[in-house]
Design a protein around this nucleic acid. Structure first.
Lengths: 173, 173
DNA sequence: TAAATTTATCTTGACCTCAAGATAAATCAG
DNA sequence: CTGATTTATCTTGAGGTCAAGATAAATTTA
């Protein structure tokens, strides 16, 4: 458990030391791990988005194209499925779709089963773009975690899975 | 390392299965762990902010008050120290300070050493509010991770620390 | 089948954030 | 000491998100 030999301190250690001094009566175990989780996510986000920006997409736009792409042919989903998968509101999805449609990366096609919605479909241009980005995105991810040894990474993955399971998951990338 | 017996699947497993089907040639190890990290953070944020909202603060406002509080008496910092600690821009900090000042939770006092800036100081009201919130915040954090067993949590904390160290940290809560 | 209800999406208004440029004080060069 | 540069902060304009309300189609009920 805590038999590792690493003595390096990160920014969260400094924060915890302050809290310990000011509020010694608090059990800080949760704040520590939750603080690290938040910080890690915050630091990684711009590094991940950087690749998308080089291809003219921001993170939200990439998320939509990636969700359509991994759904498999014909790369077509209902808006409801998209925004529930992506954990955003319907209004947010409306904006994103308008943006992507203007760029010609998706198309709205009539839903034969439900006239209240139009389906969202990856255009040829959108398909080609996401295909072009994906290898770079995957490689970028590998680079970002390259400094962490395999065992620690495997621990991290399993622990996060435990946490997500405990929370009861949902959302996408 | 991977000798645990848990077979539960989370949402990221489903996403990875789609990618595996569509893009079997990709090494998805990074996407998997980064996806879980992002998702865990996204799911936790509203649950953490909920406590602050009950006290009339949002997350950004809490962050400022908490940073001042843990800095210790006299609970007074320069804007630059605040926004670099909190990893936001100076303009964002300007807005937050205006908000908190309007609520009477902070005061701007002249900086004797540098007339370009005014120091930000927790007001009595601000101090009392953060003191009132903190126990609830700490308890809430403990509740949020209650479903994860101690060993997994300890692994998670250490792995995140490894990751943050590898990334080269910065920011606050 | 017509009214009531539910579902799927869009619209509106407000909030938070950032990047880039503007201001003003502090510090440095000569 | 004076102009040039750096530093600290604020202002402005644009983007992304959400909550709540508005629409309109689908479904249920009588």
């Amino acid at each position: 458990m805590s038999e590792k030999v690493k003595n390096e301190t990160d920014a969260v250690d400094a924060i915890m030391a302050q809290w310990q001094r000011e509020k010694p009566e608090f059990d800080l175990t949760a704040m520590e791990v939750l603080g690290r989780l938040k910080r890690a996510s915050a630091m990684l986000s711009p590094k991940i988005e950087k690749v998308f920006l080089e291809f003219g997409l921001n993170q939200p736009e990439f998320d939509v194209l990636a969700t359509l792409r991994r759904s498999g042919a014909p790369y077509c989903l209902a808006p409801t499925e998209l925004f529930s998968t992506l954990m955003v509101t319907s209004g947010t999805m409306t904006n994103r779709m308008a943006q992507l449609e203007k760029k010609g990366l998706i198309e709205r096609v009539p839903n034969p089963d439900d006239a209240r919605s139009k389906l969202v479909k990856l255009s040829d241009k959108g398909f080609e773009l996401i295909e072009a980005i994906l290898p770079h995105h995957v490689q970028n991810g590998l680079s970002l975690i390259a400094g962490v040894d395999g065992g620690s990474l495997s621990d991290l993955n399993q622990s996060l899975k435990d946490l997500l399971t405990a929370l009861g998951t949902s959302e996408a990338e």
